[in-house]
C-alpha cells in the first residue's frame, strides 16, 4: 500500500542509533507489526527524549545523524516506525539493511549531507522543536517549516528506491516483474 510522507518532525541528535534502541529484541516475539506500536525507540537514551512522550506521538518524520539503524537486520525497526505513522526518516547515512528495509516497505530513508542535516537541527533549535517537514518525492525536495521560516533541501534517491516507494514496496515490485 502506498504511504504518505512528511509532517511534524522529531530530532534524535546522535550518530549510530541502532536497531536494539529502535525496537528491543524482547519484542521480536510478536508476529504482527501492530503489536510493536507501544515500543518505538523504547531503549533510546538521549537527553530530552521520552519514548512515551507527546513529541514522538505527534511525529511523522525522524531526523537523525550518521549510520542510522545499524545493527540487526530486524525489519521490526522500520515496522515500529510504520505502525506509528512515521514513514520518513532523514539522516546523514544509514546502515545498509535498515535503509533497504525502509524502501522495501515503501517508506523513505532520505540521505542529506552532514551540513544540511545540521541546518535542519539549527532550524529545529530556533523553533524550539516545532518543525514540520514536507516531502515532495516528485521533485525530490524537502521543505522544512519552522517558526515562520521555510527552507528547502534537494535530496537524491536512486531510481530503484523511488520505484519501490511508488510500487508500495519490494513485494509488489518483484511480484509484478519476476
Amino acid at each position: 500500500m502506498k504511504k504518505t510522507f512528511g509532517g511534524p518532525a522529531i530530532f534524535l541528535d546522535r550518530a549510530d542509533i541502532n536497531t536494539d534502541e529502535i525496537i528491543p529484541a524482547k519484542y521480536l516475539t510478536e508476529v504482527t507489526k501492530e503489536a510493536l506500536t507501544p515500543y518505538c525507540l523504547e531503549d533510546l537514551k538521549l537527553e530530552g527524549f521520552d519514548p512515551k512522550g507527546e513529541e514522538l506521538k505527534r511525529a511523522r518524520v525522524v531526523v537523525s545523524r550518521a549510520n542510522f539503524g545499524c545493527g540487526s537486520s530486524r525489519e521490526h525497526a522500520p515496522w515500529v516506525f510504520e505502525v506509528n505513522d512515521i514513514h520518513t526518516i532523514i539522516a546523514e547515512s544509514y546502515a545498509r539493511i535498515f535503509r533497504q528495509n525502509m524502501f522495501n516497505c515503501g517508506m523513505l530513508a532520505i540521505e542529506l549531507p552532514a551540513a544540511e542535516i545540521q541546518r535542519l537541527f539549527d532550524l529545529e533549535e530556533a523553533a524550539a522543536g516545532r518543525i514540520e517537514i514536507e516531502v515532495h518525492l516528485d521533485r525530490q525536495e524537502l521543505v522544512a517549516q519552522a517558526a515562520g521560516r521555510s527552507e528547502s533541501f534537494r535530496f537524491e534517491i536512486s531510481p530503484f528506491d523511488k520505484a519501490l516507494v511508488q510500487a508500495g514496496g519490494w513485494v509488489e515490485y518483484a511480484d509484478a516483474r519476476y
Partner: peptide
C-alpha cells in the same frame, strides 16, 4: 548477506 523480512519474503517466493 543479512536482509530484512521483505527481502526474505521475496527470496522465499521468487
Amino acid at each position: 548477506a543479512g536482509v530484512g523480512t521483505t527481502d526474505l519474503e521475496v527470496g522465499i517466493l521468487k
